[in-house]
Computed example of a mutant assay.
Amino acid sequence: MSKLSKRPAITLPSVKEDRAITTAAKADPDALPLTPKQLQAMVPLRALRGRPKSESPKQLVSVRYSAEVLAYFKSTGEGWQSRMDSVLRNYVARHSRRA
């Protein structure tokens, strides 16, 4: 198997060719270059994807609960994990005040 890359080599335009390309682009009303203000307003696509970052992210842990506790919270329907988190937060808030 050949160790040479199968990708074609990239050849950059010369300074003269670059000027000609830039001049042609500026002359085309449908392909005007972006203004500095437009460039500054641009955001990487990566930053726009997915859910926004939480200010207080939750941590992934593995915990074992009794079958009765899980059955109860699951029987309350969708969002049972958030309700379980809320109950635990209330518990922590009540018990941390005593200390």
Rank of each mutant, 00 (worst) to 15 (best):
M1S: 13
G77S: 09
S82V: 09
S62G: 08
T35Q: 10
R7M: 11
Q59V: 07
S54T: 05
A31H: 15
R46G: 05
R64F: 03
D30N: 14
A9N: 12
A47G: 02
D18E: 13
L34C: 00
D28F: 08
L34V: 02
R89H: 11
G50A: 06
Q59F: 03
I21K: 11
L45A: 14
T22K: 11
M1I: 00
K53S: 06
P57S: 02
L48F: 02
S62K: 12
S86M: 10
P13V: 04
G50H: 09
F73R: 02
V63Y: 02
G79S: 07
L48K: 12
L60N: 12
R51Y: 06
Q81C: 00
P52F: 02
L34W: 11
K37P: 02
R49A: 03
R94K: 12
S54V: 01
V43I: 15
P33L: 00
Q59T: 09
I21M: 13
F73E: 00
Q40T: 05
S5R: 12
M1T: 09
Y65N: 00
L34K: 14
L4P: 06
Q59N: 08
A67W: 05
A27S: 15
K16V: 03
S66H: 10
E55C: 04
A67V: 09
T11Y: 11
Y72K: 04
S54F: 03
L34S: 12
R64L: 01
A25Y: 06
E55Q: 12
P13T: 03
R19Q: 12
R49I: 06
A93Y: 10
R19K: 12
V69R: 08
M1R: 10
S14L: 10
A99Y: 11
A71I: 01
L88S: 06
S2R: 08
E55I: 00
